[in-house]
């Protein structure tokens, strides 16, 4: 065996070994954290198994924890009902791909369709088509402009998130007697309408109290961009009193930056309500003191409501015999005091 052959054998063997070692390192089982309404027994008449409902489901395949939780929740909630069959289709990368996927779903004639569109405006036509074909459409979070395009719309309150974050910060500042606080804001992707609504709610509410945002550095809903934005913001503001970060996923990076720069003179409010954020709030050992919810639990609720629509039932506590047409979830403020109640809703 020549030297070259031996070297090749060694290198090849090393490469194969490294490859084998690496493929063993892709396992990632962290258990299932879905948010499911399991109140299916006892005095809840609606929970009793009824007529079988086939629910078609489509949500974007995004690389963000919130969207991942949406799909997980929908699947888990559907599995909790013995009378629900969920047919999920991959929504693909954009509105056109989702439209194509939905066309195949429509052909299967489900009883109800639950849909988180890539873009409400672009998929409005699909909503109209499905409704015309007699299949009720439940729009999840991204509204269709046309009221005839959906049977039910369930969404979060972006403007309300900003209001809730600002309200908490105002109360804290007034309690501490800070009259002109230095407030920082780290929004998500700035070109999105939802980001603009959140910022508008935050700004409007602060203005009413005579406060203003001193610096605003957008991130991109990812931890690494959150870290960058927070580092820049903290460098620009040598002293900060309060900070609102729109998204708990990017908040992982924001908290890392706070830790790395060794700054803790301020309080921070998060957004969305991730499990990690709620745990940090409960532990109370970081500047993160509160988070305002925009919970992906809405997907679980959407499946429950779609089932009721399919079975022609209403909400038990309401007088009306049918499920309402629009539901906007309130943005709730999670603090140390109530964190324990919200732990099961963290995603």
């Amino acid at each position: 065996m020549s030297v070259l052959d031996r070297r090749r054998l060694l290198l090849g063997g090393a490469a194969l070994g490294a490859g084998a070692l690496l493929t063993g390192c892709t396992s990632n089982d962290a258990g299932n954290d879905a948010q499911v309404n399991t109140n299916t027994g006892g005095d809840n008449a609606n929970a009793a198994p009824g007529q079988k409902v086939v629910i078609g489901f489509s949500a974007p395949a995004a690389d963000h924890g919130w969207i991942a939780a949406i799909t997980n929740n929908a699947k888990a909630q559907a599995a909790a009902y013995s009378d629900v069959e969920l047919r999920a289709v991959e929504a693909g990368a954009d509105a056109a791909a989702q439209r194509a996927a939905l066309a195949t779903l429509l052909a299967q004639k489900p009883n109800v369709i639950v849909l988180l569109p890539h873009d409400g405006k672009e998929l409005n036509a699909f909503g109209l088509e499905a409704m015309k074909a007699g299949i009720p459409v439940v729009n999840l979070d991204r509204a269709f402009p046309d009221a005839k395009a959906y049977r039910l719309q369930i969404k979060g309150d972006n403007y309300g998130m900003g209001v809730a974050a600002a309200t908490y910060i105002i109360a804290q500042m007034q309690a501490k007697g800070v009259s002109a606080p230095i407030i920082g804001e780290i929004p998500g992707i700035d070109s999105l309408e939802l980001t603009q609504e959140r910022s508008a709610g935050f700004r409007d509410t602060l203005t009413q109290a005579g406060f203003r945002v001193a610096n605003r550095r957008p991130a991109e809903f990812t931890a690494d961009t959150g870290q960058r934005a927070a580092t820049e913001l903290l460098q620009a503001l040598p002293k900060v009193d309060a900070l609102w970060n729109h998204d708990d996923d990017q908040g992982i990076g924001v908290l890392a930056a706070i830790n790395q720069t060794n700054r803790k003179e301020f309080l921070m409010v998060g957004g969305a309500g991730s499990k990690a954020a709620i745990e940090a709030i409960a532990a109370d050992n970081s500047p993160l003191k509160a988070t305002v919810t925009y919970s992906p639990s809405m997907a679980s609720s959407a499946i429950s409501l779609a089932r009721l629509i399919g079975q022609n039932k209403g909400l038990a506590d309401l007088v009306e015999l049918q499920v309402p047409k629009e539901i906007t979830l309130a943005s709730e403020t999670i603090t140390k005091e109530n964190a324990a109640n919200y732990m099961k809703l963290g995603f």
């Binding site: 690389d63 963000h64 991109e220 809903f221 990812t222 931890a223 690494d224 959150g226 870290q227 960058r228 992982i252 990076g253 908290l255 890392a256 930056a257 830790n259 790395q260």
Partner: peptide, 10 residues
Amino acid sequence: QATSAQAAMA
């Protein structure tokens, strides 16, 4: 830096 990694990073 981010104390985490995800598919959309970098």
